[in-house]
């Protein structure tokens, strides 16, 4: 009766530790139920040869699923496609967002309107986003062909999504369109925290616009950039919705990414073991990249 766990804790730990524990507890409860269990379960699944249409036999295969994946030529195709897509999406989104954030950080008439407008893509559900761009790229009726032909840049209607050399970039464009606003806002929020004194001091020292950007803004933006890079990488590397709506991995295997392969193996071929193993490989890649970004940008100078 006398000893509750809180009492015991308070005797062992100081006020800081106790407060921290209480403040973090709700998050851990949620994550425990909804995230941690599924994560462990899916790792467990990845060690078995589970095929849903064969419910009576699900042998333990250890690293067998992983071994099979490495021998599957489609896996290496998917790795290549995922890499191209992620690098293109993350790098362009980040640079684009930085430009937009710098623009919105300036004071000029119409800024409020502009900053409201850039929220449009963010508010567009990715399913609608995919549909909209697919409709714009349509080889028969699409707006893109319409504009380019009317302006005279293109002689006749051409194929965009159905051209394997273009597919990934067309999808990346739809992704960048949608992801840029959040990235820009995160950077903008980060810029807002930069003390104006630093700029004044720099100006007094005779620094021009670029020097101020390079020596004041950029270093102060490091945490913001890290956030953006980590987040964009995490969602781009496993992006799925656009591929489902726009190309289904095609044409041919031109947009056959890892997340598409996971979907096909899990929900079409109903091979849960292989699907889980693929997911773990993708998770490891995501983790390593995120860690590098956090290490690279997170340290305080």
């Amino acid at each position: 009766m006398a000893d509750t766990w809180a009492d015991r804790l308070s005797r062992k730990a100081g006020y800081d530790e106790r407060s921290a524990a209480i403040l973090i507890l709700p998050v851990f409860v949620v994550l425990m139920v909804v995230a941690l269990y599924p994560i462990i379960y899916s790792f467990y699944t990845s060690l078995f040869d589970i095929v849903l249409t064969r419910p009576w036999r699900r042998p333990f295969v250890g690293y067998g699923n992983y071994a099979r994946i490495f021998q599957d030529p489609m896996f290496w195709v998917a790795v290549q496609r995922t890499t191209v897509y992620t690098v293109v999406t993350v790098s362009i989104t980040t640079v684009f967002a930085l430009v937009v954030a710098l623009l919105l950080n300036e004071a000029f008439p119409g800024r409020r309107l502009l900053s409201a407008l850039i929220l449009l893509p963010w508010a567009t559900p990715s399913i609608v986003n995919g549909l909209m761009w697919k409709w714009i790229y349509d080889p028969g009726y699409g707006l893109l062909n319409g504009i380019l032909v009317q302006v005279g840049l293109l002689e006749s209607y051409t194929v965009w999504l159905g051209n394997p050399d273009r597919t990934l970039f067309m999808i990346a464009n739809a992704a960048i369109w949608k992801q840029m606003p959040l990235a820009a806002i995160l950077l903008l929020v980060s810029m807002k925290a930069i003390p104006q004194d630093l700029y004044r001091a720099a100006t007094v020292d005779g620094a021009n616009v670029f020097q101020r950007f390079w020596h004041v803004t950029l270093p102060a933006l490091k945490p913001g950039l890290m956030l953006v890079l980590v987040y964009e990488t995490m969602i781009s590397i496993r992006h799925f919705d656009l591929f489902l709506i726009m190309t289904q991995g095609g044409p041919g295997d031109a947009s056959y990414t890892l997340s598409w392969q996971i979907y096909v193996e899990t929900f079409r071929n109903l091979k849960f073991g292989i699907g889980a193993a693929l997911s773990y490989l993708l998770a490891i890649a995501t983790f390593v990249l995120s860690y590098l970004f956090i290490r690279g940008f997170g340290s305080k100078s």
């Binding site: 028969g140 194929v159 159905g162 095609g250």
Partner: peptide, 21 residues
């Protein structure tokens, strides 16, 4: 046959045929 056929699904083809294209 259009090179865009690789992204033409059955339902979209139907529209084009119905439109007399």
């Amino acid at each position: 046959v259009s090179p865009g056929a690789v992204e033409t699904t059955e339902i979209n083809a139907l529209r084009a045929m119905g439109a007399g294209q």
